[in-house]
Computed example of a mutant assay.
Amino acid sequence: MNMKPKEEVMKNRMRKPLRILLKTLGAIAIAIVLFLAIVFIVNVFATKSEQGKIEPYGQHVSVDGKNMNVLIQGEGEETIVLLPGFGTATPALDFKLLIDQLSPIYKVVAVEPFGYGLSDGTEKERTTENIVGEVHEALQQLNINRYMLMGHSIAGIYGIDYVSKYPNEVTAFVGIDSSVPTQPGMDVKLPIKKLEFLKKSGLLRMMMKLGADPYASLAFDDKTVEQMKMISYKNMNNDTALNEMGHISSNFKGAHDLTFPKDLLLLLFVQANNEGVAGWIPLHEGQIKDSVHGKVITLDGSHYLHHTKFKEIAENVRLFMSEAK
């Protein structure tokens, strides 16, 4: 009989820490919900505010009933068509430093595919076939029928398909650290649902704001940087981009056996020290080995070589094309 009060005391002592733990967990859960709610609301209001601050550039071209944005600069006799790498939120502005170097000599056409820059999004699957067809249709609408194709990163995959489809239009391919169909590691499954959540919750905006400034120390003017950041908040991980991400593996697989035509002028600018992809330089050297006029030029810099080596790229393009004539 004397043990019952002691047992009750012990039970009460055990219940007290449990109640404290539950209250603490409840408070943490409420704090997390409030935090996510604030982040979501801030993102909604910031997005609406930025819509009125984004300044238009280029011109719209109708493709599949939607608007594709294209920037044209320069009046040279030869034309260069620029294609972006995957996830470059605002291609025409991202290429600005390079465009300014090329446009005194060439007519430069920066195409912003659907889901990029100021172009509309689309529900059409982001297969290589669809992306290539849409870009070509935009150029047709602009009566651009003869041009060099210059592409960054994944544009190497779209570009190799493009030149096989339209060999009579493309005079040369210039890669800016362009992807290679046989590069390893492109069969991984990407966390698309998580990336979609980051976008829609507003967490992506917060992460971008808290992260390192990608444009720090680069030669972009302040106004261009401000515009690129606002358009990046709008476009990063949008539905069209996520659809393209979901097709990356199959698009690489589809290009696996494609090669550039032997008689196509082929100039590849390659990051000199890419530690993320084994054999990065040899992969590109393999692409030009059978070319009648092919060249690999290695440059020190990040994957976005055109951010820092725009002068070298422009000058080498000019020299390469003059030597080929």
Rank of each mutant, 00 (worst) to 15 (best):
D221C: 07
S302M: 08
S164C: 02
K53V: 05
I72W: 02
A155D: 14
G279S: 00
L34F: 13
M321H: 05
L210G: 13
T90A: 10
M208P: 03
D213Q: 05
D177M: 03
K11T: 07
A219Y: 04
F260W: 14
A37L: 14
P261D: 11
E78I: 00
I105R: 07
H293D: 14
I144P: 12
V61G: 04
A37T: 14
N235V: 10
E137H: 09
M206R: 08
V163E: 14
V61R: 03
I192C: 12
I20C: 00
M10V: 12
Q51I: 01
K6S: 10
F86N: 01
P91I: 02
I154Q: 13
N237Q: 04
G156A: 05
S250N: 13
Y57H: 09
V81W: 01
D64R: 08
I144K: 09
A172S: 15
V180Q: 13
M186P: 03
K209N: 09
T128H: 02
H306Y: 15
V108E: 06
V39P: 01
L305V: 01
S250K: 15
M245A: 10
E285Y: 04
P184Q: 05
Y233I: 05
S201Y: 07
G175S: 09
F310P: 00
N274Y: 00
K253G: 12
L22E: 04
P181K: 08
Y57D: 11
G121Q: 12
K16F: 13
A155C: 12
E129F: 06
A29P: 06
S249T: 11
N274E: 13
E55V: 11
Q59L: 02
Y57W: 06
A219L: 07
D300E: 15
F35I: 10
K325I: 06
G159L: 05
N67D: 15
L204Q: 07
L21P: 03
P181N: 07
D257Y: 10
V277H: 02
L142C: 08
M228I: 09
N243M: 15
N251W: 06
Q183P: 00
N143L: 03
R126H: 04
K199T: 13
P56H: 02
M236Q: 14
F114T: 06
F35W: 07
F252N: 11
L118W: 05
A212I: 13
P5R: 09
H256E: 14
E323F: 01
Q101C: 01
A46P: 01
G286Y: 01
E123I: 01
H306C: 04
M208C: 03
L195R: 11
Q140S: 13
I41H: 08
M206E: 09
K311Q: 14
G85M: 09
K96H: 10
I160C: 01
L283Q: 09
P282V: 01
I154A: 07
G115A: 09
Q140C: 07
K262S: 14
M68V: 03
L93S: 11
L21K: 02
M3F: 12
G26C: 12
N274T: 03
M207C: 00
V111A: 05
M148Y: 11
F173W: 14
T122V: 04
V174S: 10
G202H: 06
F45S: 04
L149I: 06
V70T: 05
L25F: 14
